[in-house]
Every structure is written in C-alpha cells, then in structure tokens.
Design a binder for these strands. Structure first.
Lengths: 139, 139
DNA sequence: ACAATTTGTAAGGAAACCTTGTAAGGCTCC
DNA sequence: GGAGCCTTACAAGGTTTCCTTACAAATTGT
C-alpha cells in the first residue's frame, strides 16, 4: 500500500528518482526556491541539500537560475521534465491516500491527515510552506 | 515534544544509546530474541542487526547466550543495565504520548494510536510481536 | 546419509548525511 | 561610503548506517 508510491515511481519514466530527492520535489514550486529554504524546510544542512540538487540537475529535473532579487542566491526551479515528475509523484501520493481511505475508512484517514498536519504545524513549523518568501529590503 | 524522547535519552545515564539501537530495545524481552527475529521485525538484514547488537554488547547493554534449543543460534538478552535503559525509554515514550494527548486531545491521540497500529498490522505484520516463537520440532 | 535450509559472521562498499573551511555578494550603521 | 558582520553557495573529507556477496556450522527433511 505504501509500496505503491515507491514502485509507482520506479516503474515510471522517472525511475531514477530516489527517496532522497523528495526533499526537493516536496517543496519546490513554479517560482523556484532557494537552496537555503529547501535545507531549512527539509531540516538538513545546506550542503546536503546542495548535493541532492546537484544530482537532480545532472539528471535534468531541476535547474538553478540566478535570483533577480539577490545576486548571491540562485533559485532552484523544476525543468519541464521535473514538473512532470512532481505531478506524477503527487498523483501517486493521492492514490495512496485514497487506498488507505478505502481500506481503513475515509473519515478516519481524513482525521489522521488533519491531526498529523496539526502536529507538524506545532512540532516542525519550518517544514510548512511559507506562501510569501521574505523579500530583501531593497526590492 | 518529540525531542523529549531524544533528549531524555541523551541526558540520562544511557546517553550513548542512539536511534539505531532502537531496533533491539524495541523488540527484545526478558527471554531473549534471536538475531534473525530482530532483523525480520526491524525489516533489515541479519548483518545490519548483528552490527547493532555487537555495538550494544560492547557497551554492556545486551549479551548473547547460546540458544538451548538450537546450537547454531544465540539469544540476544538484555543485561541488567540494558533492562534499566529499556525501562527508561519506555517511560519516556509514555511521557511523549501523554504530552501529545494534553496538547492535541487524549481521545484524538488514542484514535491516532489505534489507527496506526491497525495500519502497521496490515502493512508491516512482520514488525508485530509474535507472542510465541516457533519452536524446533525436537524441543 | 545427504541435500537443502537456517543461523550467524566477515569483508567490502554505497547512500545520505554531517562538519569544517572558503569565497563572494549584501546589509547595517556609524 | 567603508568596515564589519551576515547570508548564500560550494568544496573536501569524514561518519553513520545500511547493504551485497560469500562463507562455516548446525539443523531439518527425505
């Protein structure tokens, strides 16, 4: 049931994506995200996040573009292939949740998700999406 | 809140116990457990489980005694220090669950535990305690 | 008795992190 | 407007925790 996710990735055209890469796909949206942001949300060092990004760049799933607002920084963005992969992953994720609902009860699983999200918001707020990235003062 | 557990171990006299060691402390009871059983329940290879056990032996938390029923096998048992450590860990675990209940509602947390146990029973039955270990036929 | 299986071990390797250190761009504040 | 501090990213090297492959000894089934 959870194996659905792993095997659904492995069998697809995105079979070279491994669990570690999740720290990028989970958080990156269209506008792109700084390495520092990825590291913070994934609760890992910037160096480790950088290695994952390097690997995804080499595989053609993401690219680094200069941040127009801060010349020190780069924005990690999905390539078209990366967007397809992300969409596929999210579809699989929804399927797992659906399967859980069918097996254990839709309402119970919905309550589970709600409670877990609440716990994460309290225990790991750094992992929550920040809708607006803080902008430098000179922007 | 979850950090309670980690830091509660680290600050104690059992500060040299790390998360990896959990695969032993979680499953070993007084009568002892075979390496193969630990590996199966923890869903890892016998070699990896063996390394963890080696480390715990060196630290004085467990010992290997010959299995009277099978001369190939050894039973992994807790030393007195190991039993104290296990008891401490279980106490901390109960405290975390209690804190979660106070923060998010006792009933909701009880439901969470129930549902997760149900899911584990279906998805990872190998991790469930086998009350009676299968005995060799000549026993 | 003999083949197949089970139990545990040994050696070497790989994945996914980390720490330490460097360099460059930006911000603050007098 | 320049000095000092912070932030961003990268590089090199190390550690932890697993794994794969290969093997010896005890047990089991035929």
């Amino acid at each position: 049931m959870f194996g659905q996710f792993r095997s659904g990735i492995e069998r697809s055209e995105f079979g070279d994506i491994r669990p570690t890469h999740g720290c990028v796909f989970r958080y990156v949206e269209d506008e792109g995200l700084r390495l520092t942001e990825i590291a913070e949300r994934a609760n890992m060092t910037k160096q480790s996040a950088g290695e994952v990004v390097d690997d995804l760049v080499a595989r053609g799933y993401v690219k680094r573009i200069p941040d127009p607002n801060d010349r020190r920084a780069k924005l990690i963005c999905l390539t078209p292939q990366g967007e397809k992969a992300q969409a596929h992953g999210r579809r699989l994720f929804a399927e797992v949740e659906q399967s859980l609902g069918e097996r254990f009860g839709q309402e119970r699983i919905a309550q589970l998700r709600e409670l877990l999200e609440e716990i994460v918001a309290v225990e790991a707020p750094y992992a929550m999406p920040h809708l607006a990235r803080p902008q430098p003062m000179n922007a």
